[in-house]
Write a protein that binds this DNA or RNA. Structure first.
Lengths: 167, 167
DNA sequence: AAAAGTGTTCATTTCAATTTGAACAATATA
DNA sequence: TATATTGTTCAAATTGAAATGAACACTTTT
């Protein structure tokens, strides 16, 4: 990997993002790559994370210079993941959002969703592979299937442990 | 997620992939999505995983019906990741490959590469955020930075533990 | 009711990653 | 030396995901 490079959140064309905001957003944008989440989603979360006050959708898309459509989608996803919350702001009729920062909540939301799912399907898949292999049952295939079962087992062990450490 | 669907490795147009092979390759192709690896890479690894004998590049691209270019790139990546090995096959002048199936080796190869890297940069990033925040040092910013440090700490704890369980 | 504000949806565009295929070594065989 | 084999590289095409922006619906204010 290349050394950490300067944030690419076009700093000149700012609609007033401070340098702290830019750095933090950049952090999340990069982390998002690891989780294969859209950049816009990371930007929204990043900005909310570093915002002392709740922000409206309009607010977000203006500061981040993204389309209303993207903003709307992004907010929806983040809400579904439990990564942001909408809060009531007296005297304003639009929704306002804040970042959920408890690792425990974040982990049980998205992480679980993405990974657990695949593991759950593991049984089905292994089942199918066994069936397919039963036509041609060799020593080698048995070994490989055993290997796959071992892998799934390990993963099943690891996941709850990860939740414990993070939660 | 939709229920596990039928493999989409065009089974009709087969250059002779057995149903076991198809199922296993499909398993890896799906897992690869989680790790954000190219499909071609997953296909190659999957086929090697379920092949009793080493296979040549030519072999791979023929059975998988992919271009030589993709095959070459894929093999290179997998080798760099330590996920496949080239083995000597007497009486043949081309390289042959087998899958590395020890979870320990796989984990120290790719997983580490992808994740550790980001964590290593964490220090640099946090440093930069601190600097940026020093212009405008508020209670809130301090809390957030603390939160980020906490997150990195947890991740640093989890990673070696994961390696232990998997390795 | 009109006008302004807020938010969603969705067809289209944009963009980046992957794949292809052809050109190009490099090496072995005849 | 010519020819076949093996493998890499890279520009161009393909693909699919994400972003845009306009149309729409709903609410609130005047």
């Amino acid at each position: 990997m290349q050394p950490v490079s300067e944030p690419q959140i076009s700093p000149a064309s700012s609609s007033g993002l401070s340098s702290v905001e830019i750095e933090v957003i950049d952090l999340f944008v990069n982390a998002a790559k690891l989780l294969a989440l859209p950049k816009s989603v990371a930007e929204i979360y990043g900005l909310l994370f570093i915002s002392p006050e709740p922000r409206s959708l309009d607010d977000l898309v203006t500061k981040l210079q993204m389309s209303k459509g993207s903003g709307s989608q992004g907010v929806r996803l983040l809400r579904a993941m439990g990564a942001i919350q909408s809060v009531y702001v007296p005297g304003s009729r639009c929704d306002h959002f804040t970042a959920v920062t408890e690792l425990r909540k974040l982990v049980s939301g998205d992480f679980r969703g993405q990974v657990q799912e695949h593991l759950d399907n593991g049984d089905v898949r292994l089942q199918r592979i066994c069936e397919a292999a039963s036509e041609d049952t060799s020593e080698f295939y048995e070994q490989r299937i055993e290997k796959l079962e071992q892998w799934y087992g390990r993963a099943q062990t690891l996941l709850p442990m990860a939740q414990k450490i993070l939660g």
